[in-house]
Design a protein around this nucleic acid. Structure first.
Lengths: 247, 247
DNA sequence: CGGGGGTTTGAGTCCGTTCAAAATACGTGG
DNA sequence: CCACGTATTTTGAACGGACTCAAACCCCCG
């Protein structure tokens, strides 16, 4: 068991994981590999554990392969020359990370920042290329995944252009519902935010001050209560109304 | 020669075109087909001519195949339940149209409106499927194309979130430069807009009134002169400054 | 000449920003 | 475990860019 020095990279710990037993695989791009392909994947991949705040890859860096998030949450942050930034996507457990740059053939157009403690595998680009060539279904799965990401990005554009901050925040809560929420004893929706207030602002294309004020507004109208990163939504329909009934 | 009735569809005229001699093919997804594949493509495709204002497909309609724009310009407009809309992309001659919905496997998430008079071919989804299976390079080309579209969409999000309208309009002129501009005798950049003022507003996520005022501002600062759809840019660097030096 | 859509101009309003300060949460070392 | 310093979040007040509503203007066509 050799332990890689943490000084070499922002990675704190090394960890092993078998693709065969990885539960995520049933749903993602690597879902129907042959045993031989699965073995190849297992051999070439390297697994690491990242702590919140660590960066998996930086905007502008060349893409050397693709990542597979086993658990945790990663935010893709795009920054301009002036230092303004937006979070364009969240990538969660089971999803592939950094594949856009791989297929575009250039550098990363955004940085990948770890939100929750995450375990992430890296697959070298040559291996990805081999797998793509040997199994055309992988390519088809990527086409589908990217088509969904593109649609989500276009939708975000529409929201940014037409909704006010309050409706955008409500919409964000609804999108976070799938992955980060549960229902409590009294039937309330409890959303556990994977984001700081600053990051929420970056997702909504606004400022932290405005996020604070907007949260206050939702609370005083009894749509939801925010306590730290825990949000309690009393009535889901109210949230939907917030998005649709933009005055 | 049978002529299809124009009452059946928004298509005015029918037209034939050979994929073999189509100059665009050297650059797009269909660039390296075998002679057999090329023949298949030629047999199944149908070609039509669309006039400005006609709609190639509507948001919400099921995707029955993909389109290939031989000439002209098509705008992809995404509309929400309240009737607000943004133009998320322009698709020009040589480009494939409507492929996102094809790969996502659902309905169109935007409408395709013809701006300039356009000649567009349609390829049935079964034929596209056959070609994808027979020639893996096609899938790889689509992956690359979609990766570029995704990056453009993410960039648009960043622009919308961080730039003011004036900078966004300047940025739009710069992006239209590739396809819609030339240089006159005196070294000025002449951009021929494929868009009305209303459509410019939809691309910038703002209102026509604001577009008019912003144009006036650029003119009074002698960055560019707008005359109908013809824009004269005196100094390209001034335009770049407008985007980068957002006060 | 008289519609009719698109564009421009004007005036007032509002949402979100900015800058600044206070309050709270966080992390680290004593 | 508490005290302290720092970063984040919240609150406040003033400003401003873009929106709204409305009217005038323009241009294309019949």
């Amino acid at each position: 068991m050799n332990k890689r020095s943490s000084a070499l990279s922002p990675v704190t710990r090394n960890s092993t994981l078998s693709c065969e037993t990885c539960g995520n695989r049933s749903e993602n791009e690597w879902c129907n590999l042959t045993p031989v392909e699965l073995q190849l994947l297992d051999q070439v991949k390297t697994t690491n554990i990242y702590e919140p705040g660590q960066v998996v890859f930086y905007q502008g860096n060349p893409c050397l392969g693709i990542f597979c998030v086993e658990s945790g949450t990663v935010a893709l942050r795009k920054t301009d020359a002036q230092g303004n930034s937006v979070i364009v996507r969240l990538v969660g457990g089971g999803e592939t990370l950094g594949y856009r740059a791989f297929f575009a053939g250039g550098s990363y157009a955004s940085s990948a920042e770890v939100m929750d403690s995450a375990r992430i595998c890296f697959i070298d680009r040559d291996a990805v290329g081999d797998l793509l060539n040997s199994n055309p279904v992988i390519g088809h799965r990527f086409l589908r995944h990217m088509a969904q990401d593109l649609e989500a990005s276009d939708q975000a554009q529409l929201n940014l252009a037409t909704l006010n901050v309050r409706a955008r925040l409500s919409h964000l809560l609804l999108t976070l519902r799938d992955r980060f929420s549960e229902v409590d004893d009294e039937g309330n929706l409890i959303v556990e935010l994977p984001l700081s207030r600053q990051d929420i602002a970056c997702m909504l294309g606004t400022r932290p001050e405005t996020v604070a004020r907007t949260i206050k507004g939702l609370e005083s109208d009894e749509v939801a209560v925010f306590s730290g990163r825990t949000v309690t939504v009393f009535d889901l329909d109210r949230l939907f109304d917030e998005v649709e009934l933009v005055s």
